[in-house]
Nucleic acid binder design. Structure first.
Lengths: 193, 193
DNA sequence: AAGCTAGCGGAGGGTTGCCTCCGGATGCAA
DNA sequence: TTGCATCCGGAGGCAACCCTCCGCTAGCTT
């Protein structure tokens, strides 16, 4: 299950004093920007500067570059998984497609982070689980309804979609066109609808 | 046109003395390794070390990190384009698929480089042209033969394939399976074969 | 074989980013 | 309001990397 509201908060304890919490959030926001802009190698001092916070504050909250990565990453994943709720009312195919569109938006920013965390991180693994438990039901429902081919798994879809999003597209139109092609590949050989 | 044999060699003049040429090649090889391993931020001193060459030699050949990038990148593109020859004898669909498989192998290593060059580089643009003139005929032939849908362009295919390759796959089997799904998406709505 | 010059290597100065440490500021409880 | 525990900021030492510069080495030519 792993409901979205009461997620496993084992890591990254948010501080309790008001000003501290403000700084913590500012740092995450700043880090998200900096990483999106300069890749995973962005300077931590730059992150602190963006957040209008001393470098010491950054290190107190996130002793390591990796800690900061993970915090940003977890935040993103949480938002994504949360967005899977409410899609159950749509028809199977539409629900899946809608969620995959959100997934695309999610991956677009996170490629640099993912690249870093890929190598060895239980957080990454745990987020992966989270994502699967959000998306896999949608996929299975679509397969049961016969609108998605049966010979592939949800992990295949994740790779396909997350991959193609990593390429930067000159226009949203092209991105959607390409995404459409990929989605067509998901249909059963002689797909209804 | 831009034939593969007599490519536009405007940049990156290879040195003429024997030892210098040896060093130049060693540097490119070392750089390819280093970039593949540590991403585009790999240390240039490390590259020199791998090539068993003084740091001064590196800078003489490639005054700038970017110069080195471009040299490596161009070398890769050349190999890829060259591999398109000889595919014309295969049936249209098979030829396209075969070339795309090679393309996948090419992109796998080059994502870090591409990311760097993306922003502003005529070399990148010129390589893009080169790739297109190698792959687009294969695509058009397949479309003419009716085995690839008509409502997409070669650039869409490039994005789709290059994108999905950027994701790292745990096993070659999965990579091929996913690639297969993507390729199915290229087929016309009611595809023969 | 001998000379000329292209090419070599790596020491070293400058820059940037990482991370620690601690005196001072400030939210919160009583 | 007061007191204290928590949190802040940024100076500064350290390490890594960038790139230049120049005395020496070794291909190539005649």
């Amino acid at each position: 299950m792993t409901s979205a509201g009461q997620a496993p908060e084992v890591f990254a304890q948010r501080p309790k004093r008001a000003d501290a919490r403000r700084n913590y959030d500012a740092l995450i926001t700043a880090a998200r920007e900096a990483f999106a802009e300069n890749g995973a190698a962005a300077s931590l001092e730059d992150v602190a500067r963006r957040a209008s916070v001393g470098i010491g504050t950054l290190y107190r909250n996130f002793p390591t570059r990796r800690h900061l990565f993970e915090a940003v990453y977890v935040e993103e994943v949480r938002a994504l998984c949360h967005s899977a709720e409410g899609l159950a009312e749509l028809p199977p195919w539409d629900a899946l497609v809608a969620w995959l569109h959100r997934f695309v938006a999610y991956v677009a920013t996170k490629r640099a982070l993912a690249e870093q965390l890929l190598h060895d991180s239980e957080i990454f693994a745990s987020c992966r689980t989270e994502i699967f438990s959000a998306g896999e039901p949608l996929m299975r429902r679509a397969q049961t309804a016969g609108v998605v081919r049966d010979d592939i798994g949800f992990d295949d879809v994740v790779r396909l979609i997350s991959g193609l999003t990593m390429a930067q597209f000159p226009s949203p139109e092209q991105r959607d066109r390409v995404l459409g092609v990929a989605l067509d590949g998901l249909r059963p050989p002689a797909a209804p609808r």
